[in-house]
Amino acid sequence: MFFNSDDIEYRLYTRSNPEEPIILDSSAKPAKDSNVTDHLSKVPLKMVTHGWESSADKNAVMNIKNAYLATKDVTVIAVDWSPIAESALYPIVAYQTKDVGAYIGQFLDALSDRYNVNGNQVHLIGHSLGAHVMGRAASTSKLTVNRITGSLDPARPFFEVPETSEKLDSTDANFVDVIHTCAGLLGVFNGVGHADYYPNDGIAPQPGCQGLQGYMEACSHSRAHYLYTESIYNPKAFPAYQCADWSDYVRGNCTPSSYLGESANPHALGHFYLQTNQYSPYGRGHEIDKKK
């Protein structure tokens, strides 16, 4: 199925309307009169989107939206492209992420023109295929986007294997941080950002996802967005260690120099490793504090 910009929906949330979104069209005009859009030029903008066979109503987007509105004065725009993402034909969906991203890039330009939104305000966040969508959006927009978080395990099939230039990379924004939780399987294996975070070596199964059920439900692939959500509520939950590799981390040859997630050091460069708990709360930051 091929689509046009009308198949992408932009849902705007603030603390004044945390549950009922204001729908913006592709030119960033609200579907009904509202003063809430005045908020756009004044506070940080978090745009969040989903991946394959998902939507902006699912956990990967809703949990992050709720966490931001509970803790920060921001605008959140949940981007829904489910009319194409819901297709069972993954190769077709993957192929069209570049078009989805280009439309979102045009929408970013419309936000800038209509509400004076600037690139320094903009933080794009995407899960799986959504990470590549956001990379494309930033690279095609006239804005220089401040940050992209491919926090949600950027999809590997048809992006890393086979290799393509139409994937998220460090040239797409001033700072690109990535969380790998199913690397080499459903998520990309190699570093694609300025800072790449590999909790539990970044591979499946993640703690708590052992067994066939964990693989079948893409538990490890989804773990990235749960970690990111927790990092919004608790910015110091995930101290991360810059290391040459996992073995170096296990041997204790590294020191914490950044945090995974929302409070990632924007000057961080390289690969970062850490361990998490099996179940929520996943972060071990409090455990490290107690040892001091």
Rank of each mutant, 00 (worst) to 15 (best):
F189Y: 15
P30V: 10
S82R: 10
A31E: 12
D38T: 07
G51I: 02
V36N: 06
Y226S: 01
Y10S: 07
Y10Q: 09
F158M: 14
S27R: 12
D80W: 01
C209W: 04
K142H: 13
Y228R: 04
D248I: 06
D248W: 10
C254I: 01
N35T: 14
L45A: 02
Q242P: 00
L260T: 02
G184C: 09
F3V: 13
S257Y: 07
N66A: 11
F189A: 12
S141G: 04
I232Q: 03
S55P: 01
K46Y: 01
A155P: 01
L186I: 00
D113S: 13
L12D: 02
A137D: 10
E230L: 04
L45T: 06
M134L: 08
K42M: 06
E160T: 04
V61P: 01
S112H: 03
N190T: 14
S16W: 15
S170T: 13
I8P: 02
C254D: 02
I77S: 00
R156W: 03
E19F: 14
F3N: 13
K58F: 07
L260G: 01
K292S: 09
A155C: 04
S151G: 15
D33W: 05
R284L: 12
V145H: 07
G208I: 07
N63L: 14
K29Y: 10
A237M: 11
D169I: 05
D248V: 01
I77H: 08
Q278R: 14
P44D: 01
A70K: 15
Q278F: 11
D172W: 09
R136Q: 14
Y90R: 06
L143G: 07
H50I: 12
A224E: 06
Y273V: 05
G119V: 03
A264G: 05
I92H: 00
G126R: 06
T37E: 04
C219M: 08
A110F: 09
Y273Q: 10
G126N: 10
L40D: 08
E217C: 08
S128N: 13
I179N: 06
R284C: 05
E86K: 15
L186Y: 12
I104N: 00
D33V: 11
N59I: 05
S16F: 15
P30E: 03
K142Y: 09
N63E: 15
N59K: 12
N190I: 13
K46M: 13
G214A: 06
L69A: 02
G285L: 09
I203P: 10
K29F: 12
P21V: 08
N277T: 08
I288P: 02
R11V: 12
C209N: 01
D153E: 06
C209Y: 00
C219K: 02
R156K: 15
A31L: 13
T181Y: 13
P207K: 05
H271F: 10
A78P: 00
I179C: 12
N146E: 15
D248G: 07
I288T: 03
K65L: 04
I84W: 03
G184F: 12
N35E: 15
L89E: 08
A78K: 02
D177G: 08
G126K: 04
F189V: 03
T97R: 05
A204R: 05
R223G: 03
Y241K: 11
G130H: 03
C219E: 09
P157L: 06
G126E: 04
S82D: 02
H225M: 05
T71N: 14
Q278W: 09
E287D: 03
